[in-house]
Structure formats: C-alpha cells, structure tokens
Design a protein around this nucleic acid. Structure first.
Lengths: 273, 273
DNA sequence: GCTATTGTTTGTTATTGCCAAACAGCGTTT
DNA sequence: AAACGCTGTTTGGCAATAACAAACAATAGC
C-alpha cells in the first residue's frame, strides 16, 4: 500500500478541482460549488483556480454571478502528447483507419495502464452509431474485449491478482461474475486468439478485440471493434476477428513484435510453469 | 496585468514539471534533472511527482537509476474532455472528414484562445505528408491561415492590440512583418472570405482557412487545410477555398450561426464605426 | 572492487497555503 | 425602490505544510 506521506496537499486538491470541472463538461462549474465539493474554503479554491487559469489548464467564461470555469485548451496538447509518449498511436492511426474502412465500423486501440485498458486512439466510421467512444476511457478488465485480451496475455497469477483487486462487478445479466467463468473465458481467448465482450458491459453492445504484441510476446496494446449485438450475428464474429487480427498483426510487425499466432502459442505453452 | 499573488506556489511548480516531462516525450525525464530545471530541491520535486503519479497524471518506468517519468494516461481523458467542452469538435468531426475526403488533404479545426488559435481536432488524409499536425498546437496569429481568419473577424482595435502584444516575428522570408502589411492582408481576408498562409510560417508549406461563425457573426472556430506549396498552384487556391468555405458553412449552420458570406458582410460594414 | 550516479528518506525551519470573515457587484425579491 | 441573497474577490493572521539540506540505499559503469 502506498504511503500517504510524501504527497503535496494543495496539488491533490487542485487535481480534485480539475476532475470536478471535467465532469461538469460544457456547463462549467462554479467556484462556490467546487470549494464545497473538495471541502476547502473559497479562498483556497480561488487561489488554486487562478494558478490553473494562468497556465491554461482552466478557462473561465462569464462575469460576476454567471462566471463558469471549464477545462482549458492546454490540456489538449498534454493529452495528445500523453498519447504520443505511449509510442504506439502514431504508427497505429493509419492501420486503424484501414481497419475501419475495411469493415465499416469504428475501431479503437487501447493500452494497459495499471489495472485497466485505456483507449488512446480511435478511427470513426462515417455512419456509425457513436457509443461512448471517448478517448481516455478506462475499460474494465473483466467485461471488455480489450481488457480480457490483456488479462489472457499476462501470467495467470497476475491476471487473478488484478481481478481480485478490482473485483468483477455485474454490469449486465451476461457479465461473467465468477472467477471460474472468467478464467475459462481467458482460456478460450488464448485458444481463439481474440477476445469477446458479448453484452457483458452494456446491453446490446458487443466487442471483438485482438492483441498487439511486443518482441517478447507481451501485449503492448489491443485493437477493438464495437458494434450493436443485433448487427453482429454469432457466425459473423470469426470473419470480423480475422480482419482485426490481420490489422493488429501489421501493427505488431511494424513495431518489431510477434504476430498474434506466435504470441498466443508462446503464451499457452508458458502456462505450464 | 494579472496579479502575481493569489497563486499557489507548489501547484505552479507541479505544472512546470508536467510541462518539462511533456517536452521530454518518449524518452521520459529524470527526477534530478526536473528538480534542477524547475529550481527546487529533489525532495520537493519527489513529493510533487508522487502526487501526480497517484492521480495518473504521470507514469514511471524503470527502477533505480534507470527510472524515467512520462505523461500519464489520465491526461488523455482530460484532453478529450477539454475538446468536448468547446462544444464544437463533436459536431465538427464528421464535417471535417467529409472535407478531407472531398479534397484529399488533411483538414483541421481550431478555436481561439486568448491570443492564439488552438487546433482541437483533425481529420487525416490517408496518404498525406504528416506535418506538425499535433493536437493542441497553438498557431501564431500573424503567420497562420486560421490565425488571420480570427484576427480579420474581430474588431480592428482588438486585432491590432493582439498583434502588438504578441509581436509578429519573422518566421520565413515571406512572413508579413509590418503592421501595415498585416492589416492589408486582413482586409484582403475579409474581401475574399478566406485566410491564406503562403509560406509565411514554414518554408514550402501553404495553408487555406475559412471561418466558422456564431449567431452574432463572431468567429467561433476556423477550418484549415495544410499542404505543400508546390502541390498548390496559386490558381488552384480559390477552388480549394470554396470547398473549405462550403464545409465551414455547414458547420456554422449546424450550430445556428451565420454563413461566411453573411458574417464577412456584416464585419466589413461594421468597420465604419 | 570502487566511484559516481540515481531515487528515496529524514528532520527542521519558516515559508506558504489555508481559513474565517469582510468586501463589492449583480440579480432577484420584497 | 430598497432590502435581500447570491456571486467572485480581497484581506489579515495562524499554523499546517511544503520547502530545504543532508544523510541513505541501491544501482550502473568503470
């Protein structure tokens, strides 16, 4: 457990404020509410906000009683640079666009971060229903196609440890909510070389994901496609998965990594030890 | 001028550190260097970094002497939400993609922020040279097509004030480096309804931009296309501009604003006062 | 093996960020 | 119209806290 010391109080509160303003979105947030939500005085919140505004992290509109604080545009650059620093999005974008064009569906790529899969880029299909495809979204490990790809690729003990730590809350009637069921699905994922979310996170939504692997066979990213379950009959999944895997392999090879077939083969035979 | 008081010191230093880590990019940054660059002790920098890591703003790789700090993935979500809070990117993306498909070139959309135009979204063309199309990039007002669209649309006194404040540094031999030349170009921009950057910011690079206008005729955004100057003969510019304006108008109308023709007409006749 | 780094701790000081309360400005109500 | 209630902004004063310097452990490179 991380020690609570060696932390900067005012900075933590500033991040609380930024987070609150983020969820406020377009409407913006007010100083008084922010101060109360964070649990500090108005004056303290005021000083923090002034500092953040001077650096472009926040912006304000309106005057007097109608003043509202919103996220600032310096975050756009930081977010983009955070994606770049993963080192995969730049190479992935053209491949993602190819995939989207080939199958006519929005595709996304996610990387693993601590205990969740984070979407770092997407290629939107022209006429596609826009689900919650927000960048930076953290996909739960146990009920997302990308999450299960990462879990299946890592050592079994690590996967179990993560599942026990984060839990596996029931999101829909189809969510796999026992460790046994999840482990069985991870086995199936390894066998078929791709991960599936069959309405396990959101009713009516299905996902298929394939891994992107490094030179040592570890999963460095996962490419996924999301669509309405009713538009994806069960017998259409293998063909879709084949296309996703082909594009994911292109990315793996472009980065000097293993193909999906190689990586899963290695992973399956490593489970013995 | 903003008062230097009512600011939080530690928070400012934290933002310095984030900024330094951002420019370090893929290589990452080291604690000792960061502390020295910011001008604080290692212990202070350490506490700040620990706080930022606990919140996902930073991430670390390596152990011991090879430890490197990079931007964290929570910034991805914040950056995306900052774009969303402008309220234009969501509506703009499909239109931007249409424009890119129609002309075969990467298109971008920028909003005005204080004294620069900030790129908040882009639609990449399949086989296009990738310039510095980074999201969040701040385009200088005096030597970018989008910047000049914003300047031309605002009251003359405001534009001059901004130009005097930011200056108009010479970037290439073609950069307009006198106030008279810039004002003449803003006049031309108003007349022709689109802005041009003819190798004024970067040699060999040309841009064309059109405004997106609100209900009151103010410029809320600008759509631009960037390409190599040698691929864009002078007599091809009007046709390209016409296409850009048509798509920008679609966006303006979708948001309940004025068309380019209406907005520029109003703007030109307002200059009298 | 040693040296020169690194990131991580530890106390100690006074700087600094916090609170409470008073202020000015605006919108709504009385 | 004049009182109210609500903003965001400012002010002093106190003490919590973020800063420093220095010692620590652990590693990479010679």
């Amino acid at each position: 457990m991380a020690d609570e010391s060696y932390r900067v109080q005012s900075l933590g509160r500033a991040l609380d404020i930024v987070e609150l303003i983020a969820v406020a979105g377009r409407d913006g947030a007010r100083l008084t509410d922010l101060a109360q939500s964070v649990g500090i005085s108005k004056a303290a919140a005021y000083a923090i906000i002034q500092t953040l505004m001077a650096r472009g992290v926040l912006s304000a509109t309106g005057e007097g009683m109608t003043k509202r604080y919103r996220l600032g545009l310096s975050l756009v650059r930081l977010g983009d640079m955070a994606v770049s620093s993963t080192g995969i999005a730049d190479i992935a974008m053209p491949i993602l666009r190819d995939l989207t064009q080939a199958i006519g569906l929005t595709s996304r790529i996610a990387v693993w971060d601590e205990e969740a899969a984070v979407v770092v880029a997407r290629a939107d299909a022209p006429d596609n229903v826009r689900f919650d495809a927000a960048l930076g979204r953290r996909e739960r490990p146990h009920c997302s196609a990308v999450g299960k790809v990462f879990l299946a690729a890592m050592p079994r003990a690590d996967a179990v440890s993560i599942l026990e730590r984060t839990g596996y809350p029931t999101r829909t009637p189809r969510t796999l909510d026992t460790l046994a069921a999840l482990e069985a699905d991870l086995d199936a994922t390894r066998q078929r070389h791709y991960g599936i979310d069959d309405e396990e996170d959101h009713e009516g939504i299905a996902c298929v994901a394939a891994g992107v692997f490094g030179y040592d066979g570890s999963a460095v990213a996962a490419i996924s496609v999301t669509t309405l379950k009713q538009l994806l009959p069960d017998d259409a999944v293998p063909a879709l998965a084949k296309s996703i895997i082909a594009h994911a392999d292109r990315l793996s090879l472009a980065m000097g990594g293993m193909s999906a077939a190689q990586a899963w083969h290695k992973r399956i035979h490593l489970i013995a030890e």
